[in-house]
Design a protein around this nucleic acid. Structure first.
Length: 259
DNA sequence: ATGTCAATGTTGCATTGA
């Protein structure tokens, strides 16, 4: 079984590449972030033609998450129970479902914008709520994983130049401690292998030749429990999908399971 | 093969977020 996560940066803009990639990669379950569309405008029909069911949590211009599966899609829960609001709005950043033998979450963790910004406090609150919401499944016997754009680089080696991130979000002790608290529920990082270079970056800024210069970050993560990790046979970042015209600024992270 | 991209409102550019 092949499970992947991909921040597509608008499913509308990415649809041709998304459909082609699903077919060429043979992905069974894809966790999607930044759909940037309404649930009504989500391309449910186009995905159904390829044999995928869709579960979507989205409200429009910003954020939006989905899970698409060709191995079953049951017990869908939209949103993050107990999660904080931002500016009085519950943003669409989480959805979970059971796909065959595996339960998965697709998450788009708040960016944080700047250290000290209200969005940064919101990011930490959101991660705390996520930890509480997944604790039972993380400790369970069923393969379980939280996949998505965490907007955190777990280690200094997960950014192209740590000195370029001094004082920035995505690398602070507070954010990394929030990840550690999430791992303490029984989850751990399924680190993918890179297809080129040494570091498995998943995101490269569109600006300033980020991708050609390999100025990347590993911020799209797969956090699985013991039964999930025991079933992992391979994991890699499909950097080929970051190339060329019409690419997202994130590459898919692909995980193969023997279930 | 690469010196942003995408959605939306203030609409054919400016604004916002990433």
């Amino acid at each position: 079984m092949r499970i992947a996560t991909w921040n597509v940066n608008s499913i509308t803009a990415r649809l041709p590449r998304l459909l082609a990639w699903l077919e060429s990669s043979g992905t069974d379950v894809l966790c999607i972030q930044e759909t940037k569309t309404t649930e009504e405008a989500f391309p449910t029909d186009a995905l159904a033609e390829l044999g995928y069911e869709s579960a979507v949590r989205a409200t429009g211009r910003w954020n939006g998450v989905a899970i698409v599966s060709r191995v079953g899609l049951a017990d869908v829960v939209g949103g993050l129970p107990g999660g904080p609001e931002y500016d009085g709005v519950e943003e669409p950043r989480a959805i979970s479902a059971t796909c065959g033998p595996v339960r998965v979450w697709s998450v788009y963790v708040p960016n944080g914008r700047e250290v000290g910004h209200p969005h940064f406090a919101y990011k930490l609150q959101w991660l705390k709520a996520l930890r509480d919401a997944v604790a039972d499944d993380a400790a369970g016997d069923r393969p379980f994983a939280v996949l998505g754009d965490y907007n955190i680089a777990p280690h200094d080696s997960d950014v192209w130049d740590p000195t370029a991130f001094i004082g920035a979000t995505h690398v602070t002790p507070e954010e990394r401690e929030a990840l550690a608290a999430l791992r303490a529920t029984g989850l751990d990082d399924v680190v993918p292998r890179p297809l080129k270079y040494d570091q498995p970056f998943t995101y490269w800024d569109y600006r300033q030749l980020g991708f050609p210069k390999n100025r990347g970050m590993r911020i799209d993560l797969v956090y699985g429990n013991d039964p999930f990790r025991s079933a992992v046979s391979d994991a890699y970042v499909d950097r080929e999908e970051r190339k060329g015209k019409g690419a997202s600024d994130h590459a898919p992270v692909v995980t193969d399971l023997t279930v």
